[in-house]
Design a binder for these strands. Structure first.
Length: 485
RNA sequence: GGGGGCGUAGCUCAGGGGUAGAGCAACGGCCUUUUAAGCCGCAGGUCGGAGGUUCAAAUCCUCCCGCCCUCACCA
């Protein structure tokens, strides 16, 4: 009721403004500067017109200070009774509220405390608010409100503004780097017939006009590779993807993945490119190759470690997967080592290796590490290694125990691909609903011929989470999905 | 889905069986240099919801809703 009371008082102010001939919701306002530009101006500059949300108001009898703010910056404004007249001054004091959008025109001056300020000659209400803002120095603390009403968090928290601006900058920087290295940005379908390109459960929906079941993509991979068939030699997509799996601090169902594909590269070329790309991104966005995460300095400047899945497991668990030629042998070794893996009995050898890795090795990989050479049955779209046909030429970049990048030399042999997808289809038929579907349309494209390719995918939300020192993806996604109230 | 924590004024938080509290914001005043402005005054609550125990419940119990953490599931 108190809030409703407050709202009513503000509605009354709107009426009062209308009676005084002021439109509380005008059509436009001509600015001469943005706030972050205006606060760089010379003292004495006249006719400066700025606009923003009023986030503070400190009235005195004949002089009032306010602050206009937007995502990029803020600037102080001052209303002087003797300049704008008693009537106007009183109307402002009676009708203005913290939270209102205001436009002002005036001269830049310096206050006694030395702050550049606009001395308001004219002002306009640009958007009256009806609701109060969060409290001014603790800001918004309630996680639920932060997520449900992110706009309040962004208004109240400079850290949050910085974090989301950095997200944008990271994405821009990645685009720029790829653009400058001959990649074409493309868009491929989000709604599609088959959910492929990764091992994950998709979201299903229904297409009314075509009366068919469609899926939200889990990865853009097979479409991007079709474009390589078409003659593109380097493509990328900033791809929103959807996976109908569990939700936790490092998994969201709706997330952003950057994928690129480069013809004529292998995964070694791709690792080199990845290091250069990261160096550029970190220097551009952070000005440093070292970042602090949970009290640890992560150093991207040194040569990144390379660890094969086999080496990592051997070191951490003492288990040599090469000595376990099949799932049964490996299962025995795992239980002999006293390690428990859920549903171990139902997993194949590759899946066991993967579970074992996630359970023991991954969280120990703090410094940037290329984890290489994954079992072939976990990588149905990756090229079989020439050196060991049970392995793929694949790498993941792991930082702070989080998988950030996944990449490989792509499988371009249509016959091998068909066999591998048939194996997946068999798993699927046996009840594994994350196994990949046989995708004839993709095989048809492959059979028209593909060059050597190396592809790459990075979780944008994850890298931004790390770079901003957060530990939950939701803190770098403006509006994470929550339950209905 | 299991386990744990949390939910009190618009916001930030106290209070943990005995009359519902503070600061900020709001509202009425004073104030020409504030920036967490200051001072005086005033108002604001179905204590997440529904049951129960009790002479008495924000407080104890049960269920439900929401959020967070964790485990499980999972690129």
């Amino acid at each position: 009721m108190a809030e409703e009371d407050l709202r009513q008082k503000r509605l009354n102010k709107i009426e009062r403004l209308r009676e005084a001939g002021c439109n509380p919701y005008p059509e436009r306002f001509e600015r001469t500067h943005r706030l972050n530009e205006a606060c760089q101006l010379e003292e004495g500059t006249e006719g400066v017109r700025i606009a923003g949300r009023l986030t503070a108001f400190r009235p005195f009898g004949k002089l009032s200070f306010g602050r206009l703010q937007d995502i990029h910056g803020s600037m102080q404004i001052a209303f002087q009774r003797d300049l704008i007249g008693t009537e106007t001054y009183q109307l402002i004091k009676k009708t203005i509220d913290i939270g209102d959008f205001i436009g002002v025109e005036g001269e830049v001056f310096r206050t006694k405390t030395g702050e550049l300020t606009i001395r308001v000659a004219h002002h306009e209400f640009l958007g009256k608010s009806l609701r109060p803002l969060p409290e001014k120095w603790h800001g918004l603390q309630d996680r639920e409100t932060i997520y449900r009403q992110r706009y309040l968090d962004l208004i109240a928290s400079p850290e949050s503004r910085e974090r989301f601006l950095l997200r944008t900058q990271v994405i821009q920087t990645l685009r720029r780097y790829l653009d400058e290295h001959g990649f074409q940005e493309v868009d491929t379908p989000i709604l599609c017939n088959k959910a492929t390109g990764a091992l994950a459960r998709p979201f299903k929906t229904h297409h009314n006009a075509l009366n068919m079941e469609v899926f939200l993509r889990i990865a853009p991979e097979t479409y991007l590779k079709r474009l390589i068939v078409a003659g593109y030699d380097r493509v990328y997509e900033m791809a929103r993807c959807f996976r109908n799996e569990g939700m936790d601090p490092s998994h969201l169902q709706d997330f952003t993945m950057l994928e690129y594909y480069a013809a004529y590269w292998n995964y070694e070329d791709n690792m080199r490119f990845t290091e250069e790309l990261f160096r550029f991104m970190l220097e551009t966005c952070l000005g440093s190759l070292q970042i602090e995460i949970a009290g640890e300095t992560i150093d991207f400047s040194k040569k990144w470690k390379r660890v094969s899945l086999r080496e990592g497991l051997l070191e951490e668990t003492g288990i040599d997967v090469d000595e376990c030629p099949d799932a049964d042998a490996l299962r025995e070794r795992i239980s002999a080592a006293g390690i428990e893996i859920e549903k171990a009995g139902t997993l194949g050898r590759g899946a066991l290796i993967d579970s074992l890795y996630k359970k023991t090795v991954r969280k120990k990989l703090i410094q940037p590490t290329f984890l290489v050479q994954h079992p072939i049955d976990l990588s149905p779209l990756a090229r079989r290694s020439d050196k060991d046909t049970n392995l793929t030429d694949r790498f993941q970049l792991v930082v702070a125990g989080w998988e950030i990048v996944n990449a490989y030399s792509e499988l371009v042999d249509p016959i091998d691909q068909r066999n591998r997808l048939e194996e997946q289809a068999a798993l699927r038929a046996a009840g594994d609903d994350e196994a990949m579907e046989l995708d004839e349309d993709y095989l048809l494209a492959m059979e028209h011929g593909m060059p050597p390719i190396s592809g790459w995918g990075m979780g944008i939300d994850r890298i931004v989470t790390l770079l901003t020192g957060q530990d939950n993806l939701r803190d770098v996604v403006p509006f994470p999905l929550l339950k209905n109230l």
